[in-house]
């Protein structure tokens, strides 16, 4: 039985997705099953490794995006009664690239060593955070980009909508379609529930944004600039509606507050505090 299920989100870029799947099958295949979600992809642009093809009219028109997409995959696993068979879920978009050959074994060993970690992310060569990971390869953060989250199932079960699992709000808040600010929310929920969110430099992952910039028409999405503007505008409106926050900085301080509180109750983890 594999300990991890990797969920990969694809929309109309089969060759990129296949490459990522094949990399993972070759180097991480002993540790993870792979599930590919087609977020409204055209029938002739499906990955060889497609698991689920979401193709309702609205999904075909606008895709799923990260929050709804990952919720969709997790909910499918719940529906198929496979959710509980995994210890953790590795959430990837298809533009993720790994520096090393094997990733998941190392991430699992970090999780085993740190049972309080609910969210774990590889560092990226392009992230300044690597400067903070010198003496300790793994540290706990209050802000982590969602390039490649490994989420512990116990953590998900602590915060998910288990009464009515659905793609809008099972774990991430899909009402925020493009997801600006949802990482903050997830990390706040982690610390509020006594889980930590960590970055490790033992493995590296990066996001190849060139696909979004150069192939947005193929993905059937907006151009980069328009997408960015919508991402921020929608995210800000969501923050205001949901929290009454008019600034991402308010959201940030909200998360940091839970982070600091976590260490007050867990001084034993202070060496992992940044």
């Amino acid at each position: 039985m594999k300990r991890v299920c990797t969920i990969i989100l694809n929309r109309n870029l089969p060759e990129i997705t296949d490459k990522l799947c094949e990399h993972m099958l070759e180097f991480d295949g002993d540790y993870t099953d792979i599930c590919v979600i087609e977020a409204g992809s055209d029938d002739d642009k499906l990955s060889k490794y497609t698991t689920w093809h979401a193709k309702s009219r609205s999904i075909v028109a606008q895709g799923l995006r990260y929050c709804r997409g990952m919720n969709y995959g997790l909910v499918q696993l719940v529906k198929e009664k496979k959710f509980k068979q995994y210890e953790a879920f590795f959430l990837l978009t298809n533009d993720t690239e790994f520096k090393q050959n094997g990733t998941i074994k190392t991430l699992l060993s970090v999780m085993d060593e740190h049972p309080q970690i609910g969210i774990l992310s590889p560092c990226s060569e392009r992230w300044g955070e690597r400067l903070l990971l010198k003496e300790e390869a793994t540290k706990y953060f209050w802000f982590i980009h969602n390039n490649a989250y490994l989420l512990r199932r116990d953590f998900i079960e602590d915060i998910c909508n288990d009464k009515n699992p659905n793609m809008i709000d099972f774990l991430f808040d899909g009402n925020n379609f493009r997801g600006y600010g949802t990482e903050h929310e997830l990390i706040a929920k982690a610390y509020a529930n006594d889980w930590a969110a960590a970055i490790t430099n033992l493995v590296l992952a990066s996001e190849n944004e060139s696909h979004l910039i150069d192939r947005f028409d193929q993905i059937k999405t907006q151009g980069y600039a328009e997408n960015l503007e919508l991402y921020i505008t929608e995210g800000r409106n969501w923050m205001r509606r949901k929290y009454g926050f008019n600034s991402i900085w308010s959201m940030q301080l909200y998360v940091k507050n839970f982070y600091d509180h976590f260490f007050e109750f867990h001084p034993e983890f202070s060496k992992y505090k940044i």
């Binding site: 300044g128 955070e129 400067l131 802000f143 960015l228 940091k256």
Partner: peptide, 17 residues
Amino acid sequence: SPVRVANEIPTEIQLPK
């Protein structure tokens, strides 16, 4: 900047420290 600047620690992390 609402998006990451390459090779920088995000201000969200840097400033409070």
